[in-house]
Design a protein around this nucleic acid. Sequence first.
RNA 1: GCCGGAGUGGCGGAAUGGCAGACGCGACGGAUUCAAAAUCCGUUGCCCGCAAGGGCGUGUGGGUUCAAGUCCCACCUCCGGCACCA
Length: 946
Amino acid sequence: MPRYAPSRIEPKWQEWWEANHTFVSPRLPGKKKRYILDMFPYPSGDGLHVGHPEGYTATDIVSRFERMRGTSVMHPMGFDAFGLPAEEHAIRTGTPPAESTKRNIDTFRRQLKMLGFSYDWSREVATTDPGYVRWTQWIFLVLFDTWFDTTENRGRPISELPIPADVAAEGDRAVARYRDEHRLAFQSEAPVNWCPALGTVLANEEVVGGVSERGGHPVVRMPLRQWMLRITAYADRLDRELDGLAWPESIKKLQRDWIGRSTGAEVDFFIGECHGDTPADESFAAWQQTRKADGFPGKPTDDALRVYTTRPDTLYGVTAMVVAPEHPAVERLTRPEARGAVEAYREAASRKSDLDRTDLAREKSGVFTGSFCRHPLDGRLVPIWVADYVLASYGTGAIMSVPAHDSRDHEFAVAFGLGIVPVISPADGGEAELPFTAHGIAVNSGPYDGLATAAFLERVGSDLHSAGLGQPAVNYKLRDWLFSRQRFWGEPFPILHELDADGRETGVVRPVPESELPVPLPVLSDYKPGNTPDPPLSRANDDWLYVELDGVRYRRETNTMPQWAGSCWYELRFLDPLNSERFVDAEVERAWMPVDLYVGGAEHAVLHLLYARFWHKVLHDRGFVSWPEPFGQLVNQGMILGEMEFTGYRHPQGGWLSAEQTRVHPTQPGVTIDRETGDEATSVRIPAEQVEKQSEHFVLRDAPKIRVDSRAYKMSKSRGNVVNPDKIVQEFGADSLRLYEMFMGPLEATKPWSTAGVGGVRSFLERCWRLVVDERADDLALSSAVCDDPADEPQLRELHRMLEKVTSDIETLSFNTAIAKMMEFVNFCTPLERRPRAILEPFVKALAPFAPHLAEELWQVLGLPAPVSLADWPAIDERYLRDDTVEIPVQVQGKLRGRVTIDADADADAMIAAATADPRIAELLEGKTIVKTIAVPGRMVNFVVR
RNA sequence: GCCGGAGUGGCGGAAUGGCAGACGCGACGGAUUCAAAAUCCGUUGCCCGCAAGGGCGUGUGGGUUCAAGUCCCACCUCCGGCACCA
């Protein structure tokens, strides 16, 4: 009984493809190439999730389709294998991370192969492979060897960095220090996000609302020597060069917002000698003279407080200056009588974690320094305050406070009783409610009164510039990338710290020679991070830790790189994974890059995708890659939620609580309470057959007054709604899983899982099977209905319409409608008692990218030579796409009143004639005046009557 | 609070401004069967009607148009992201 048996067919063809190297890509592409890439997974211990195959199936369909069209396809897969879970597992169990990682990769590889993806497995890489780490470290050294030339707006070799004469005069050490300060990879002592629970420092991107993104542990700020990558140098290009990319606009916007480019002006406020004194009139006048003569200095001078503002048109509304607690001028600006309060405030601010700063942010805090500065335009005295709502790390670390036109400044002014002076009135002449942050017309602004905001900005910009008081400035929210981690399971930095005779670091660093890469991870007995930010690698034995080179002793860098490092360039390594001379061969890189289609989750919108673009641009500037951007087209697949659930609520005193009488607990998100009493309700999952829909809501069948919630939830272990792909493959087969995931809805949409739906596509595949195979025969045999008759006209029409739809839908990634069209085709063929090969064979080809195992098997049963996976994509004959006659709707007053059949190419007059000839329409038009007739050829007729 | 995205049958979803609900799930009916499973065929937005037919329908309220799920304005709900960046 040869029923459709995926468990027999699928392994058979997977082995065949592997044995015949069906999907191996050539070193160089032919005439047309497509590089189709999935975001490679982190191989977690849980194995593949049903979310993974969604994007992977989409790219697999496109890859298989393109191969059948004769395109050279690059479609690799690998593993982003460094990461915290493996290390945490190691800490708990003592298993070296390398071992558990290998095991997890083996599981992932088995699961991916089980789904029949057409990856070129000979190109597999894991970011943890020594052969891969070597080049990650090498690229780090490229960053270390690069400085950013702001005039040319590109990275250049450090050897080309111009050395100022005064630095050169100080000698080699000074020159080395100067270079170190300008490298794209540099060390910094800035405060960092230290997470005691994870025992590591985190990047800004990994801290969400003051707690770690992973695990939600508290994060505190402390100063530490860290490696930083100067991504800010590329902020402008990372922003601008998004323009040419075929990415979703929403992702581009997320990146733009993250980069946060803003334009405005830097303005200097005179503080004089300022040891807390008020600058005198005559010294202010002298300062103004000097500035007018010498212009605006590039670096702020000690006699001025420099602010950054996007609204220099509100300059006359300034009522205070506010500087960040960490601002270097605070010391000088604080008058003796305020010193105690200011010191205390700064001390408190330095100990506040980000969590405290954001949580307490609702209430503005700050202290007055006791000193004043001079307003650059009208010379008025302006008090200087310290407040932590001003960030030291943005702009100049100081702002001019304009309470009337900035909501934060407004809150601050209200809290401390500072003046509020409106200088912009609404353009419509109405009364402004303060703070009024929109554009408008200037008032109380001296010579600028009456100017519209845009004109004001232009005028005041040039006035400030010619007076030497200000200059246009651009700022970015983006911060430099904190690139070191105090963890074990990451790439070691290929950096050596020079030691003096006493074994102390001299501050001089040198790269590990290229010939000695990769720097391997040391063998440790214990992976636990310490209580201090001292990295685990510092506990390595001396053989690893200390190195002698050219007669000098060095200690290795003991920080490791973050998980993002490996994924910053893997798209390049796939092209040439075994190259031991270069990270990727130049010819190969030029031929295959950029990635033509990149599919993955939207959660990587600002992290991975920004970092990878940054590395790519550096490699491009240094001449190692030929394109400035790695990923041409990007598509985000949507999330797959668990099955739909109905949830009812039980009252603590017993009985049901209707859903609209509940709400979520204000502080505990998982808890539902009685809206009135606040009592905690118990959530109960209700089987679908016990509910019914009543107008807008679902209610209990037995108690229709009680509403229940209906929705699908994110899959999670705790909710117990995780679907395991292994089980689905076992029960339905890989082709069914692939097809179902594509049939659920649009690729980009979030959609709920339904196991019943998998059964639906499975029965479609069974219908495909019976179209070709004789299920009643004892052995695998062709159905007797399959014949060599020529296909008739209706059959060819059905076939070519299906082919046309499937082809265009794959091109637009609309797989759900492509599958629906194939289902229609099979429904058309099933009743045929004689089924011509002429329509079956092209159908099997069209099915092949979607359900490749079944297609191969059917191809073989049809007696055709394997593999159908590389057969020519069927040609579409336009002749069969057009109808001779069409049925069109006839409307009267825009309402459908009948249908008539007309020639497909009938003109408007012929259509109207046919429509009026229809007895029903004629009846409706009887006695009415036709005011207007609309006839759209081939589409419809509409009569407007009176 | 700000920025995105989405609201269409019992469910997932389809629809270049031109026949709303393709396709699938579920449900119902029929054929086949001793019976069941499987399979095949059919019906299935809601309301009125024996029927022919009619009315109402794409979150809500307005608008543009001969014609709106689709375009415009206002609002509601849900999902996702950001959150003192001057």
